[in-house]
């Protein structure tokens, strides 16, 4: 049974590894939309950033997974079962045809679990994508305007300027914000159990909780304290490793940039 506990650490790491790039993708799209000169698109981008950032992540997690699941099934239902005439909402029930079920009712258990995990990743990514969008938006605006004007003077189109000048340069400005976001993301993972994932907090509670001799061979009292202590160490370790890694990344990115950090690096190497 304890291997499930160890497995859940792996789950958390996997979630982090997948969520980070996906959230960055959402963030990039959001920032691009917010910068757009097409008003509805820019409104959409800004609305996404403002609304999702304005809501506590717990509140979001409480209903979003079910909403997402229903949205997927509803869409599939419309496409796969056009001849279906019964209403999808019958009173409290949400009913789609068998073929539209996600995953299919016949799928083995691991598919269901993977699907649940997938929903959690999407939910996390949407929430943290909004924060990332905000940071990237700031990063894009922090790139010195002269750089963009120079690009224009060279006859680059807006699109070329964006991809060749703005995007490569914005990272260094966005990195402090993004690394902070990464730290926040790590610390948001104890809420995974809200999304129906059996994560480390779930197992720490389950295994650490009072165990009655009747139902187990290893009875014990309330040991949650020790299990949570293990979690504490895990999180502190993650934070420390991330701090070191991000520090290195920052040094590399600062290389040759017109920032005080870049200036410092230049001095170090020439001195």
């Amino acid at each position: 049974m304890h291997w499930l506990f160890y497995l859940s650490f792996f789950k958390v790491l996997l979630l982090l590894a997948i969520t980070a790039p996906v959230a960055l993708g959402f963030g990039f799209l959001g920032a691009m939309a917010a910068r757009s000169h097409f008003p509805p698109l820019s409104l959409l981008g800004k609305g996404y950033i403002a609304i999702v950032r304005g809501v506590p992540d717990i509140a979001f997690f409480m209903f979003f997974v079910i909403a997402l699941d229903q949205a997927f099934e509803w869409t599939r239902h419309k496409i796969l079962c056009p001849e279906w005439t019964d209403p999808i909402r019958q009173g409290n029930d949400f009913i789609v045809c068998q073929a539209a079920k996600l995953p299919l009712g016949t799928a083995p258990e691991w598919v269901h679990e993977t699907y649940g995990f997938f929903l959690a990743v999407i939910t996390f990514s949407i929430v943290f994508g909004a924060f990332a969008a905000n940071v990237l938006f700031g990063g894009m605006r922090a790139v010195p305007h002269a750089q963009l004007e120079t690009a224009e003077a060279y006859g680059m189109t807006r699109r070329q300027t964006f991809w060749r000048i703005l995007v490569p340069q914005m990272w260094v400005y966005a990195l402090p914000g993004l690394s902070n976001l990464w730290m926040v993301l790590i610390k948001a993972t104890p809420l995974l159990f809200l999304l129906g994932i059996e994560d480390i907090v779930y197992w720490a509670r389950e295994l650490g909780g009072f165990k009655n001799p009747k139902f187990t061979q290893y009875p014990h009292g309330d040991w949650r304290m020790w299990y949570f202590l293990a979690l504490l160490v895990f999180y502190l370790g993650m934070t420390r490793i991330s701090e070191i890694g991000l520090e290195r990344l920052m040094r590399r990115l600062s290389h040759g940039q017109a920032t005080s950090g870049g200036e410092l690096l230049r001095k170090e190497t020439t001195a």
Partner: peptide, 18 residues
């Protein structure tokens, strides 16, 4: 700073209550 920034608030609450 490291202790409080490095651990989830969720776990801080748990320990504090204990």
């Amino acid at each position: 700073i490291f202790l409080f920034r490095g651990s989830p608030l969720f776990i801080q609450f748990f320990f504090a209550y204990f």
